[in-house]
Design a binder for these strands. Structure first.
Lengths: 142, 142
DNA sequence: CTATGTGCAAAGATTTTGCCCATAT
DNA sequence: ATATGGGCAAAATCTTTGCACATAG
């Protein structure tokens, strides 16, 4: 989680180049646990990179997701959120404010086989998404 | 799954009224297993109700979801999909075309407790979402 | 030098809102 | 009669795209 060696390696292997923007965006995402939206990430990197645009943030998030360096979370029909922690884990989403937190649980592996057999799909992944209310919202709205 | 008695009951209890549009939208959603988007549902009901608008479809889907008669699925950062089957079950989503199919699996109940304890959230629900490729896309793209 | 990426502005896609009339209770 | 809902058009929100210039390899 400290350096960007994996970014360089993966990016080069894929035939893409490595821009200052791409690196900055990944670093910013790695530096937070808030599961930011593209717009929030845009605000995070803007101080260091005032001419960057939201389009560049979106473009790079897609590239990074394609390379497996970032995961995209679709929790609530609003803006997608992004996570630089690509180790297998789950998320809990606040139904009130949309905040997302990590949960170190993974779905039992054999469920993928069962799901594939029942649906006829070739199942490659499984996400576990909890929802409820976050400590903040519970306090403020009680 | 045959009548709309539960719709009448639930709607009345909530202090809302029961419009022809609301009923038609729920019936249409109950009549398909395709997990349609709001726009697809709009096209489904338009033949019977030519003056209905997409805004009405969205408004009613939100009301029905609030009343627990419909579930909203956010699978792929595209348009939300909707499901009138509110019994506990899961979904598998095609990464290529976005098609969604049902899977009769439910996440182990105790995971909610674990997730709540770890995150500090008050966890009320858990969704299990598989992804992969659907039979159609596998055949067509091989 | 060539491929890849960025900034900018515009467009596309999805969803929500305000206003006024219609319908349900 | 009053509250709730719908149609319409406009806007808000989120995301993608075309193009000309810039940067990386």
């Amino acid at each position: 989680m400290q350096g960007i060696e994996d970014l360089e390696r993966v990016v080069h292997r894929s035939g893409r180049s490595m821009s200052r923007q791409r690196e900055t965006i990944l670093q910013a995402l790695r530096g937070t646990r808030s599961h930011p939206t593209a717009a929030e990430l845009f605000d995070l990197v803007r101080p260091q990179m005032p001419r960057i645009t939201l389009a560049t943030v979106y473009r790079n998030l897609h590239v990074l997701a394609e390379l497996g360096l970032v995961h995209q979370l679709d929790t609530d029909g609003q803006a997608s959120r992004f996570d630089a922690d690509v180790a297998d884990h789950s998320h809990v989403c606040c139904l009130n404010c949309g905040a997302v937190a990590d949960v170190s649980l993974t779905a039992p592996e054999h469920l993928k086989d069962l799901a594939g057999r029942e649906s006829g799909y070739d199942v490659s992944g499984c996400r576990l998404l909890f929802d409820g209310s976050c400590p903040n919202c519970r306090t403020n709205l009680q």
